[in-house]
Simulated scan of single mutants.
Amino acid sequence: MLVKVCGATTAEEVRAVAGAGADLVGLWHGVPGGHADLSAGRLAALAAEARTTGRLRSVLVTFGSDPSALARTATAVGTDWIQLHGYQPPAVVRALRAELPGRTRVVKVLHVRDGACPEAGLIGAYERAGTDLFLLDAVTTDGRVGSTGHTLDDRTVTALADRTTRSFLLAGGLRHANRDRFGATLAHPGFLGIDVDSAVRGDAGLLDGARTADLVHAWKAS
């Protein structure tokens, strides 16, 4: 089971979540107005910091939709995964996969709002285009996506996961205390791990090692 901690902005945060047992660190780039959006320089520096930990893989998290630009960025900074957050069409995945054959893993977010996923009908197209795995996340009623703190229903997650042939990560309001709400998700053969942000931040708003360790322990417990 993988734990991805999203939204690092400092080297200290990267080291803290690595020491707490996380497996992936999300680095935002091309997220206009995002609280953790990084310049290209900072993205490269933190991806390099992740490599020095010896355990963390870095994930470029973006709303971007220019495949060539994304491929150049991923190659230049050496991120391991690209997470397409937002509503990029399958054609973007196909073009990105062609630019990065067999290297960077491509993650497509599937957004769920009021129990419905607007991209559900495109899942097969995303898979044929070269999506390696999906991330299931909640959208607020007013349309906000990413780091909303809203939680998905266990049955909604598994019903959507049943429509894919790829593995998936779960996001959306996950905390150390609500693992038991996702029994069916945890048992699903496609379940790969979780993605968290706000639940592991300290009072200053930075990613916190102790809170990350508590969450990792709770979710990775057998």
Rank of each mutant, 00 (worst) to 15 (best):
residue 2 L to G: 14
residue 3 V to F: 02
residue 4 K to D: 01
residue 4 K to V: 00
residue 6 C to L: 01
residue 7 G to I: 07
residue 8 A to R: 04
residue 14 V to M: 05
residue 14 V to R: 06
residue 14 V to N: 03
residue 16 A to V: 10
residue 17 V to S: 03
residue 17 V to G: 04
residue 18 A to G: 10
residue 18 A to E: 03
residue 20 A to L: 06
residue 21 G to A: 00
residue 23 D to K: 08
residue 24 L to S: 12
residue 25 V to A: 02
residue 25 V to Q: 03
residue 27 L to Y: 01
residue 28 W to H: 14
residue 29 H to E: 04
residue 30 G to M: 01
residue 31 V to Q: 04
residue 32 P to L: 08
residue 32 P to D: 05
residue 33 G to I: 06
residue 34 G to K: 08
residue 34 G to Q: 08
residue 34 G to F: 02
residue 36 A to T: 14
residue 36 A to H: 14
residue 37 D to K: 11
residue 39 S to K: 10
residue 40 A to Y: 11
residue 41 G to L: 04
residue 43 L to A: 07
residue 45 A to N: 11
residue 46 L to C: 07
residue 47 A to F: 06
residue 48 A to S: 13
residue 48 A to M: 05
residue 48 A to R: 10
residue 50 A to N: 08
residue 50 A to R: 09
residue 51 R to H: 08
residue 51 R to D: 06
residue 52 T to K: 15
residue 54 G to Q: 11
residue 55 R to S: 13
residue 57 R to N: 13
residue 60 L to F: 05
residue 63 F to D: 06
residue 63 F to A: 12
residue 65 S to K: 13
residue 65 S to C: 10
residue 72 R to I: 12
residue 73 T to I: 11
residue 73 T to R: 09
residue 78 G to S: 00
residue 80 D to C: 05
residue 81 W to R: 11
residue 85 H to M: 09
residue 91 A to S: 15
residue 96 L to D: 10
residue 97 R to I: 11
residue 103 R to C: 14
residue 104 T to S: 10
residue 106 V to S: 11
residue 111 H to I: 07
residue 111 H to K: 05
residue 112 V to Y: 00
residue 115 G to Q: 01
residue 116 A to I: 08
residue 120 A to Q: 10
residue 120 A to I: 02
residue 121 G to L: 06
residue 124 G to N: 04
residue 128 R to I: 11
residue 130 G to D: 04
residue 131 T to D: 05
residue 133 L to N: 00
residue 138 A to R: 01
residue 140 T to N: 02
residue 142 D to R: 15
residue 146 G to E: 09
residue 146 G to W: 09
residue 147 S to M: 13
residue 149 G to I: 05
residue 150 H to N: 12
residue 150 H to F: 11
residue 150 H to K: 13
residue 151 T to H: 11
residue 152 L to W: 01
residue 153 D to F: 05
residue 155 R to S: 15
residue 155 R to T: 15
residue 155 R to N: 15
residue 156 T to A: 08
residue 158 T to G: 05
residue 159 A to W: 03
residue 160 L to N: 04
residue 162 D to W: 05
residue 164 T to E: 04
residue 166 R to H: 00
residue 169 L to A: 01
residue 169 L to N: 03
residue 170 L to F: 04
residue 170 L to A: 03
residue 171 A to G: 02
residue 171 A to F: 00
residue 171 A to C: 00
residue 172 G to Y: 02
residue 174 L to V: 03
residue 175 R to L: 02
residue 176 H to Q: 09
residue 177 A to H: 11
residue 179 R to I: 05
residue 180 D to G: 09
residue 180 D to L: 11
residue 180 D to N: 10
residue 180 D to I: 09
residue 183 G to V: 14
residue 183 G to R: 15
residue 187 A to D: 15
residue 187 A to N: 14
residue 195 D to K: 00
residue 195 D to L: 01
residue 197 D to A: 14
residue 198 S to Q: 12
residue 198 S to G: 09
residue 198 S to F: 04
residue 199 A to K: 01
residue 200 V to R: 02
residue 202 G to V: 08
residue 203 D to F: 13
residue 204 A to Y: 06
residue 204 A to T: 11
residue 205 G to D: 07
residue 206 L to F: 15
residue 206 L to R: 15
residue 206 L to P: 12
residue 208 D to H: 14
residue 209 G to S: 15
residue 209 G to V: 14
residue 211 R to L: 14
residue 212 T to S: 04
residue 214 D to L: 15
residue 214 D to V: 14
residue 216 V to G: 01
residue 219 W to C: 00
residue 221 A to E: 06
residue 221 A to V: 08
residue 222 S to Q: 12
residue 222 S to A: 14
